[in-house]
């Protein structure tokens, strides 16, 4: 019964996340890359691609979003905002690159 409720709660969370076209990642495992694609709601162009990153890493990491690559290291907090009207899928990639540990919070989305 407990698992059943957990499943429902998880489904609701995913549903909300998908319909908002916004996601949040909490990263503390720097052993692998994370890739994702945001798919716009059909027939509705979005107007901006945005991510906000906050955290720290012991060496350089890179984030590529909508084809734009940025690198960070140490303690950082940055907001990426790009006017972009259209309906194309938007790719996201987190690459730990040279970093082996740290803690990062990234929220990315299309609006």
């Amino acid at each position: 019964m407990k698992n059943y409720f957990l499943f429902i709660l998880l489904s609701i969370f995913l549903l909300i996340s998908c319909s908002k076209n916004e996601k949040e990642l909490l990263i503390d495992d720097f052993s692998k890359k994370i890739s994702d694609t945001l798919v716009p709601i059909e027939g509705r162009a979005y107007g901006a691609v945005v991510y906000e990153i906050k955290g720290d890493s012991n060496d350089t990491i890179s984030v590529t979003f909508n084809g734009v690559k940025k690198q960070f290291f140490g303690k950082f907090e940055y907001k990426f905002r790009m006017d972009y009207y259209g309906g194309m899928n938007v790719g996201f990639e987190f690459d730990p690159y040279r970093a082996t540990n740290g803690k990062i919070d990234i929220r990315y989305g299309i609006y």
Binding site: R44, A45, Y84, Y85, G86, G87, M88
Partner: peptide, 13 residues
């Protein structure tokens, strides 16, 4: 209005 009048991504951006 733009969505109504223009179709392609590169017209809109």
């Amino acid at each position: 209005k733009t969505e109504e009048l223009f179709e392609t991504d590169c017209e809109k951006h």
